[in-house]
Amino acid sequence: MEVRTIKVFTTVDNINLHTQVVDMSMTYGQQFGPTYLDGADVTKIKPHNSHEGKTFYVLPNDDTLRVEAFEYYHTTDPSFLGRYMSALNHTKKWKYPQVNGLTSIKWADNNCYLATALLTLQQIELKFNPPALQDAYYRARAGEAANFCALILAYCNKTVGELGDVRETMSYLFQHANLDSCKRVLNVVCKTCGQQQTTLKGVEAVMYMGTLSYEQFKKGVQIPCTCGKQATKYLVQQESPFVMMSAPPAQYELKHGTFTCASEYTGNYQCGHYKHITSKETLYCIDGALLTKSSEYKGPITDVFYKENSYTTTIK
């Protein structure tokens, strides 16, 4: 009895394709271990004539594949690729409408935090270190965002349907971005203890939790000093293409032309909904596939993004 075979390709990165001759009487799992086709788990399936010449994702289970996976995804987590594939199996079914010149995501599976993050990423200057993220990001900007969303979920250790947080998501993504040249110098002034300067680099240099107003941050924000008295913390120097200011959701007025974009969060910790506000020729609110415009805006804002380049204080 002759062994019926077909020729397929296996890959971990969709760049390096490895030619395989597979036995049609055995499952993919018996031949390769966990195997995925377009995100779908085909591990328990036997090869079919229609699979001839198709590319299958496999887990990096030998040295060659491990090197290829690390170079593309910059992670050695053995569960990463499987999590990416199972997320992709959902995100490829989502709709990605162009809204006001940006790629958004039609609401499904509690994905409003991903839509808000995706919209924000198209408006701030950011370059990702893992080629996987950078490639998928370019495709997302062009309207094909399924891979990018699935990668975000995998890097953030999230599953489809789980509630997510924009600030946490951005923080994970910033860790995989090139923020080497970003720098922030802060000064804390206390009447009792004097003053202390701190220099922050990388992710810490672009994120701040405690106030939404970048102007206020430049002037000074009140913080408790270690001595128990009130101290003032203010920005001395900022070198970065953008800054992200966050605070627990509270009524906040966004003035046209003073910011790049913002995240609105309605609801409580267990259950809520994100919308995205962007400042173009007027203010726009993007909620999944829905767009509304207004000249002014007041609502429960939790993150505001500002364009920056270089700032030095005039406070002496």
Rank of each mutant, 00 (worst) to 15 (best):
K201V: 11
G210D: 01
T159G: 09
S50C: 12
Q238E: 05
T43Q: 08
K255N: 00
Y269D: 07
K219Y: 01
G164T: 05
L173R: 08
A115M: 10
R139N: 11
K106C: 15
C112V: 06
K316P: 14
Q216H: 12
K229T: 08
W94P: 03
V188N: 05
L17Q: 15
G267E: 09
T258V: 01
L88S: 05
A115T: 14
G272A: 01
T211E: 14
S246T: 04
D13L: 01
Q122K: 05
T120A: 12
L212T: 01
Y297C: 00
L37R: 12
M26D: 15
L81D: 07
G164H: 00
F80Y: 03
H74K: 11
V67H: 12
N110F: 06
T27E: 14
F70R: 11
L291Q: 10
V3E: 14
T91M: 04
T282R: 03
Q197T: 13
A69L: 12
C190S: 05
Q251W: 10
I152C: 08
G53N: 02
C227E: 00
K219Q: 13
Q30P: 09
I105N: 01
V160N: 02
L118G: 00
H18N: 12
P131N: 02
T5C: 14
L291I: 14
W107I: 00
T169R: 08
T169E: 03
T27P: 15
E144D: 14
D303E: 04
H74M: 12
N111P: 09
L163V: 08
E308H: 01
T103Q: 01
F70W: 12
N157S: 05
H51R: 05
F174G: 03
N16L: 09
G143N: 05
R4D: 12
D38A: 11
R184E: 03
F32C: 15
N111W: 06
E296Y: 14
Q216R: 07
Y269V: 10
K298W: 11
N89W: 11
T169L: 08
H273N: 02
D41F: 06
Q98N: 13
A146L: 05
R83V: 05
N157P: 02
L186I: 15
C271W: 10
A115L: 06
Y72K: 11
K255M: 09
P60Y: 07
K44M: 10
C271A: 06
V99E: 10
T43K: 09
Y172L: 15
A250D: 12
Q20A: 10
K201W: 14
N49L: 14
Y96W: 03
Q98E: 09
A140M: 13
L121V: 11
A289T: 10
C156T: 10
L37K: 12
K275N: 00
N309P: 12
S310D: 11
G29A: 05
C182H: 06
T199L: 06
T116L: 10
E71F: 03
D63C: 10
G164W: 03
N49F: 12
F305M: 00
A69S: 09
K201R: 15
P224A: 14
Y138N: 15
N268W: 04
S104H: 06
N89P: 07
K95S: 15
V58Y: 05
Q195W: 14
R141E: 05
I301Y: 01
P97D: 07
Q238P: 02
L283V: 12
Q237T: 09
Y138G: 14
K46V: 14
C227W: 02
L114W: 05
L121K: 02
A150G: 06
H256N: 07
Y311S: 07
E168R: 09
A117V: 15
S240P: 04
I152L: 09
K233S: 12
R141G: 10
V3R: 13
K183A: 07
A150D: 01
T91A: 01
D62S: 15
V67Q: 14
K191Y: 11
K298I: 15
L59R: 07
G228A: 00
H51G: 04
C225G: 01
L186R: 04
V188G: 02
L102I: 06
S240R: 01
K183V: 12
Y234W: 09
Y274K: 03
F305G: 04
G33M: 05
V67L: 15
T198I: 15
F305H: 04
Q222Y: 05
S294N: 10
K307W: 00
K229S: 14
Q237P: 02
N147M: 09
K293C: 12
Q30E: 12
S25L: 13
G257Q: 05
K298L: 06
Q270R: 09
I15W: 09
L254M: 06
C271D: 12
A146S: 11
E168Q: 11
G101Y: 03
T11F: 07
K191Q: 14
V58E: 08
C156M: 03
S294R: 12
Y172C: 12
Y96V: 00
V166Y: 00
